[in-house]
Amino acid sequence: MDATAGTRLHGDGLTLGYDQRTIARDLDVAVPDESFTVIVGPNACGKSTLLRALSRMLKPAAGSVLLDGSDIHRLPPKQVARTLGLLPQASVAPDGITVADLVARGRYPHQGVLRQWSRTDERVVSESMASTGVAELADRFVAELSGGQRQRVWIAMALAQQTPLLLLDEPTTYLDIAHQIEVLDLCAGLHAEGRTVVAVLHDLNHAARYATHLIAMRDGEIVAEGEPAEVMTAERVEEVFQLPCTVIDDPESGTPLVVPAARHRVRA
């Protein structure tokens, strides 16, 4: 069977790096269709670099990223933007922009000079705001919002792109625990609606709980991938993160829960 069947987005023989510094060499990766794929690994393992390559932000030094069978760098940028959405780590909300205006900018790949704001654009933007729970913030300025609200607005903008694939680079960084769960629940909802979602996450327990497909990386290599229950073992976590731990069942979800070994005990 063809190894790339059932995957619209995959990378073949990727060598990735910045300037002269190579981060990953000869990497093969496939994102299973309709999965919630989460990439985990220690700092500087190349997980964000891989996501940047998959979303065509970074051009591989060798190898290629294929979207629906074509080299992603050869496809017209707007066509890619109608298939694959990305939430980058750093986005700038322009001065004085409202939530509705920012979300509306997600429609750019569907618009043109003579088709600036169709009825479809209008409908999709309201739907995107409704499904991320920011509809009641529509007329507020983005600068006034809390971190969690702002992240939902950016996700709404990516949703307005109406792409079957959605890539998120550390969407929960800088959020408190309640907002982290809120954003991840939102992503799980988008996945349940039939989208393929790919995210880079730091928190292993979140990764294990939400992912349907887990990719563990270390030193620019994929160490393991598959269902969280198979990938997330105590030996594997120690191998990847150099962290002795116990893995138990999450009492809420039954997914693996990593409990780091106690090296220092606080006396009672």
């Binding site: 700038v92 997600g106 000079v113």
Partner: peptide
């Protein structure tokens, strides 16, 4: 006509603009 709409997108940072299909 050629640049105005793309300049709006560029205000959100290069990555976001690129993700939205701006060259």
């Amino acid at each position: 006509l050629g640049c105005a709409r793309a300049l709006h997108m560029l205000e959100m940072g290069d990555d976001t603009a690129y993700a939205l299909g701006v060259r």
